[in-house]
């Protein structure tokens, strides 16, 4: 049912939120490799293997990107567009994970071919549940495209 461990790229500027995501994946033991970067520029650097991420062993191709929208330097939507516009990256599922439930954000995200849009719930248990479901759905049930590598 589940194949090779998948690398998850978490793009999140809020350290606390990143911690929450990390804890949840750890707890549900479906944790594959979670890589956290805190701004849009770093996310793109990672995906393209630039700057600090030039070593492919240290920065493997992610099987899933969890992307916040409001990010320093390069905006989340911009990162999403870049990924989806690149033939090599466009197959990577990108799940938007953000606090904003603004309609315009949702619309723009889907316009830019986001694979899913999730809003961080304020309620603790809901957040935990969301993370659990998210993990199962994307890491267990979801069929990933065959990696080109």
């Amino acid at each position: 049912m589940h194949g090779e461990p998948i690398t998850i790229l978490l793009v999140e500027d809020d350290q606390a939120h990143a911690e929450i995501v990390r804890r949840n994946f750890e707890k549900s033991r479906i944790a594959n490799r979670l890589i956290h970067v805190s701004d849009g520029q770093a996310a793109l650097d990672y995906l393209y293997g630039r700057e600090a991420f030039s070593d492919p062993l240290q920065a493997p191709r992610p099987g899933l990107v969890l992307l916040d929208l409001r990010l320093p330097k390069i905006d989340g939507l911009e990162v999403l567009r870049t990924i989806k516009a690149d033939a090599l990256l466009s197959q990577i599922p990108v799940v938007i994970l953000t606090t904003s439930a603004a309609e315009s954000d949702v619309a723009r995200a889907y316009d830019s071919h986001a694979n899913s849009y999730l809003v961080k719930p304020v309620d603790f248990s809901q957040f935990i549940e969301l993370m659990e479901v998210l993990g199962y759905y994307w890491l267990v049930w979801n069929q990933h495209p065959k990696s080109e590598e």
């Binding site: 606390a16 929450i20 409001r70 606090t99 304020v122």
Partner: peptide, 21 residues
């Protein structure tokens, strides 16, 4: 408005979640 709602919500989420933890 957007920014405020987003940026103010963000610490709230943090606080609530970590209260749970």
């Amino acid at each position: 408005t957007y920014t405020v709602s987003h940026d103010l919500k963000s610490p709230l989420v943090t606080i609530k979640t970590f209260m749970g933890y």
